[in-house]
């Protein structure tokens, strides 16, 4: 990766990340860190402060956060780590570094309006329970809006 640091990433680090004083409250409260010991949001903040943003964006760690926002609540410095992780993922995605599973979810929403297909089995269960038929999403409106966002380019670059 040879790109220059995007301007808004630089602002994010200078205005938010630098306030991290490395106490580790985020790691101590993090569900992912319980399941994956090498996952460490404190170290991620340290890497950013030390200028290693390329390594952070191209690594796997940023995609392991569950977005539970516990670190957001417990951080004594108000760094807002889970929000920073969302921003980092957005930057990584612009550079074509998003996991393909994420892009497949967008394709599903763009083509059906939903994240899941409506299966025959579920239609039968709905009928058996006396539930109304599922109302269709206005998928053409959803697709049109997606066309107006950065998701369009991301989906073109990484098919399948």
């Amino acid at each position: 990766m040879n790109e220059e640091m995007p301007e808004d990433l630089e602002v994010l680090i200078k205005e938010k990340v630098v306030h991290c004083f490395q106490c580790g409250s985020c790691v101590g409260s993090c569900p992912t860190a319980r399941a994956i010991p090498e996952y460490n949001p404190r170290r991620m903040m340290e890497e950013l402060i030390l200028g290693r943003w390329r390594e952070v964006l191209s690594g796997r760690m940023i995609w392991l956060c569950t977005l539970c926002h516990t670190c957001y609540e417990v951080c004594p410095q108000g760094v807002g780590i889970s929000h920073i992780i969302v921003e980092l993922r957005n930057h990584a995605a612009r550079l074509g570094l998003a996991p393909p599973e994420y892009l497949n979810n967008v394709r599903q929403v763009a083509s059906t309006g939903w994240t899941s297909p409506l299966t025959g089995a579920v239609q039968r269960i709905r009928k058996e329970l006396g539930l109304p038929e599922v109302k269709m999403a206005r998928v053409e409106e959803v697709g049109r809006l997606i066309e107006l966002t950065e998701l369009r380019r991301m989906m073109e670059e990484k098919p399948g």
Binding site: W63, L67, V86, E87, R89, N90, A93, A98, E101, Y102, L103, N105, V106, V109, G113, W114, T115, K135, M136, A137, R138, V139, E141, V142, L145, I146, T149, E150, L151, M154
Partner: peptide, 18 residues
């Protein structure tokens, strides 16, 4: 005409404004 909410995991992570 309601659809998927906007999807908090994949879509938020790829493009927050989308």
């Amino acid at each position: 005409g309601a659809s998927c909410c906007g999807e908090p995991i994949s879509i938020q992570s790829l493009d927050r404004e989308a």
